[in-house]
Write a protein that binds this DNA or RNA. Structure first.
Length: 391
DNA sequence: TCTGGGGTCCTAGGACCC
DNA sequence: TCTGGGGTCCTAGGACCC
């Protein structure tokens, strides 16, 4: 009889350091060492090189509008600036910080570069956003430290950028580890390290415990992961849902069996826009109509570009008071047609009572399916069940 | 000086069918 | 005829992540 012995997995989480800001520093090397904030609208205030060779930049205190910080250099972070903070607030903290508009095409380019560099070493990669990936190292020879250093070197050679790596028995722990020694960090951890390295950390270091859960746990006297690990499951179940309580318990023990997903399928494709000022349904009808039509057209283009069709069409509205609501409708056929999407969003809009000014409008297509062929009247996904008489 | 944009996952309730 | 239970689909909202 052959016994199958389960070997511990070796999962790496590779996270690019201050990714957007670092890409900007490649473009504008003279800004190195200065507090730089990336954010605001793309059409706003790029840096320009004057005819005399001087780099002309805009300062944070000059900014007026609804933008938020997308990312900031470590110099700006030292002053308390973090992602998601409104630019106006950041300007109070570091008025002289340099503000650069986000340049997503560049970030996308560097993202592909670093992922391609890693892909030369292994195919066991899970994409987890523009600036991070999980890598399953289990089947690779060499010890973890050697592998981590080759990964860092490959990324550096391909992009000129630094990354931080955490290696642990699962994704949850690897993700926590990669954050421990940023920037240019490397942390390798086994199960036996959990009590002294993980348990002293705040519960919010766990990917999946956000602001709401952190707050709720704090009220219950649970602040660290160690305290969460010691909590009784029955106690957690009485304050959180059944499934979330179990997940919290396991996460605190460092248990996570999620596999590496190498080719995830998209579930939805969406576009949304926050208006420069809040709009009134009647007075600003033209602007809203045009915006809706643009969003639908962009979503349609995105669908075509990524080769998807979808049949659930939805809208998202955010009012001036930040109340957010969604409406959606499921069609009988799949589509990637802007006109059909627009018609469906109009149906959705009819189901909303407008009493407040509108801050945001969004369009989303879900129930996606890849691969399709045109069939005169409608678009049918190949894997949809076909009537037998077709075959 | 409040709070971007693109996503995922989960929950809960109702409709509908057998 | 006063009332079951499982399964699936759809809708809406919310937490969370990068």
């Amino acid at each position: 009889m052959v016994m199958k012995i389960a070997t511990a997995r070796r999962i790496a989480h590779l996270d690019m350091d201050a990714f957007y800001a670092s890409v900007e520093l490649i473009r504008y090397p003279r800004l190195r060492g200065l507090p730089v904030v990336v954010g605001g609208r793309t059409e706003h205030r790029p840096a320009t090189i004057k005819p005399d060779g001087m780099l002309h930049v805009h300062r944070l205190h000059e900014y007026v509008g609804r933008g938020v910080v997308t990312t900031a250099t470590y110099e700006a972070r030292a002053a308390g600036v973090f992602s998601g903070m409104s630019l106006m607030k950041a300007a109070q903290l570091v008025p002289n910080a340099i503000l650069l508009p986000a340049n997503f095409a560049s970030y996308q380019y560097y993202s592909k570069l670093f992922k391609a560099a890693v892909a030369k070493l292994t195919t066991q990669i899970e994409d987890s956003g523009i600036d991070e990936i999980y890598i399953d190292l289990t089947q690779l020879p060499n010890d973890s430290k050697i592998l981590a250093n080759s990964l860092k070197q490959a990324v550096k050679e391909a992009t000129g950028l630094c990354c931080s790596i955490g290696i642990a028995p699962n994704k949850l722990l690897a993700k926590i580890c990669s954050d421990l020694e940023k920037p240019d960090g490397l942390t390798i951890m086994g199960v036996s390290d959990i009590p002294h390295r993980i348990w002293p950390l705040s519960v919010k270091k766990i990917n999946g415990i956000g602001p709401k859960a952190t707050e709720k746990l704090a009220v219950l006297g649970i602040n660290t992961i160690g305290e969460l690990a010691q909590a009784k499951l029955s106690f957690l179940k009485s304050y959180f849902g059944y499934n979330y309580a179990i997940w919290l318990m396991e996460a605190a023990q460092g248990i996570d069996n999620r596999p590496i997903i190498t080719n995830p399928k998209a579930k939805s494709i969406s576009r949304e826009t926050t208006f420069e000022r809040n709009l009134d349904l009647y007075h600003d009808r033209t602007v809203l109509t045009e915006s809706l039509s643009n969003l639908c057209e962009k979503v349609a283009q995105d669908l075509k570009c990524k080769n998807y069709v979808g049949r659930t069409i939805g809208i998202k509205l955010r009012f001036a008071d930040f109340q957010t609501l969604t409406r959606n409708i499921t069609l009988s056929t799949y589509t990637d047609d802007g006109i059909k999407i627009l018609a469906a969003t109009r149906e959705c809009l009819r189901r909303i009572v407008f009493q407040k000014k509108i801050r945001l409008l969004g369009v989303r297509v879900s129930s996606l399916s890849p691969f399709y062929y045109e069939n005169n009247a409608s678009v049918i996904p190949l894997q949809a069940e076909l009537p037998f008489d077709v075959i």
